[in-house]
């Protein structure tokens, strides 16, 4: 009895040998593996992750440890990349800078992705005034010059966050860390960058959903009686995942760059926290005398930013074959 109900699809075809099914993801990985620049990008990303996680164990010194007898030294056996103006080991500072960059990239990307996907999806599904509000908010955010706005917001946030921390400390005796306030800088940068960078993902998700919804295969699903949820989980999400992954990768690099930019402007990570942007800014005044102090963090930052751009480009070519550049 049971054999009668066996689905036909699984039975081997009698006349043709069907080629093995290949998913978009398999294709994408193969495509990516052929792209040397993207491989370089992926390598940089993994290296950054490794250094960010294990940096404290790799570093030969403590990132805030000063040795005022040995300042502004060129690279040597003790200090592989030399020391900065306070006698801190530059190599250690760069390793901890990777930690800062990665952490900021991670939380800002998480924040903008959650906010962007939620707002974009809400706009696309609910339509009407929700959609209108979300899109106008995106227009308004886009109208502002982003780094300058983020810098302005972070200046204001810093004041408020500091006030809140002092209030919490005095009233409830609560503080994350007594001596080191670098975590407040993370909060400030996270808040200001998320507020400035969410709109790209919201517009992307909304556009994807709106255009996919009109496609024939979704219409066919609907005609077959698929539920809304089945369409969303089975088609909308998988199909809009590719562009979203690309945006997240590029956005991750962008968030790290923005952190470096804010720190370079002096409104990001504050001393003694380590940030590549702040290191460039601190040593910029002495580029004539100690060029390595400016060049080393600069080169590291440039390689990381380039790596993420190459990876994003490669992912775009691999995951969105229909818009591959000719």
């Amino acid at each position: 009895m049971i054999s009668e109900f066996e689905p036909e699809g699984d039975a081997p075809h009698q006349f043709f040998v069907m080629p093995a099914q290949r998913s978009l993801w398999q294709d994408a990985i193969e495509q990516l593996a052929r792209n040397r620049l993207a491989i370089f990008g992926a390598f940089v990303a993994f290296l950054l992750l490794f250094v960010a996680v294990f940096g404290p164990w790799l570093a030969p010194y403590d990132y805030a440890e000063q040795n005022l007898l040995r300042i502004n030294e060129p690279p040597s056996g003790d200090h592989w990349l030399g020391t900065d103006g306070l006698g801190r080991d530059l190599f250690t500072r760069i390793l901890y800078g990777a930690r800062t960059a990665f952490l900021v990239g991670l939380i800002v990307t998480a924040g903008t992705t959650i906010l962007g996907v939620a707002l974009g999806a809400a706009g696309a599904f609910l339509g009407g005034w929700v959609d209108f509000t979300v899109m106008r908010l995106a227009d308004i955010t886009m109208a502002f010059p982003d780094i300058l706005l983020a810098a302005f917001i972070s200046v204001i946030f810093r004041e408020k966050v500091l006030e809140a921390q002092i209030f919490l400390l005095e009233r409830y005796g609560w503080t994350f860390s007594e001596a080191n306030r670098v975590y407040l800088d993370y909060l400030v940068i996270f808040g200001s960058l998320t507020l400035v960078q969410w709109y790209g993902k919201a517009r992307l998700v909304r556009g994807q959903i709106l255009s996919l919804r009109e496609k024939e295969f979704i219409e066919a699903e609907r005609a077959l009686g698929a539920s809304n949820w089945a369409i969303i989980s089975g088609h909308l999400i998988p199909n809009s995942l590719g562009p979203l992954i690309v945006t997240i990768t590029v956005g991750f690099g962008g968030a790290m760059l923005s952190e470096a930019s804010l720190s370079f402007l002096g409104v990001g990570i504050q001393p003694p926290g380590a940030s590549w942007g702040a290191m460039i800014n601190d040593n910029l005044g002495q580029w004539r005398y100690y060029p390595h102090l400016v060049v080393m963090p600069g080169i590291v930052l440039a390689i990381v930013v380039l790596g993420f751009n190459f990876l994003g480009d490669g992912l775009n070519d691999a995951l969105n074959p229909e818009q591959r550049r000719r």
């Binding site: 620049l37 760059l257 470096a260 930019s261 370079f264 942007g277 460039i280 800014n281 910029l284 580029w287 004539r288 060029p291 400016v294 060049v295 600069g298 080169i299 930052l301 440039a302 930013v305 380039l306 751009n309 190459f310 480009d313």
Partner: peptide, 24 residues
């Protein structure tokens, strides 16, 4: 690829490097 490199390296990295090269 050259344009990608030129456009993605931030001004505050390439600026000091060019200064060092063309002044020192």
């Amino acid at each position: 690829t050259g344009s990608i490199i030129a456009s993605s390296i931030p001004a505050y990295v390439i600026g000091p490097i060019l200064l060092i090269v063309f002044v020192l």
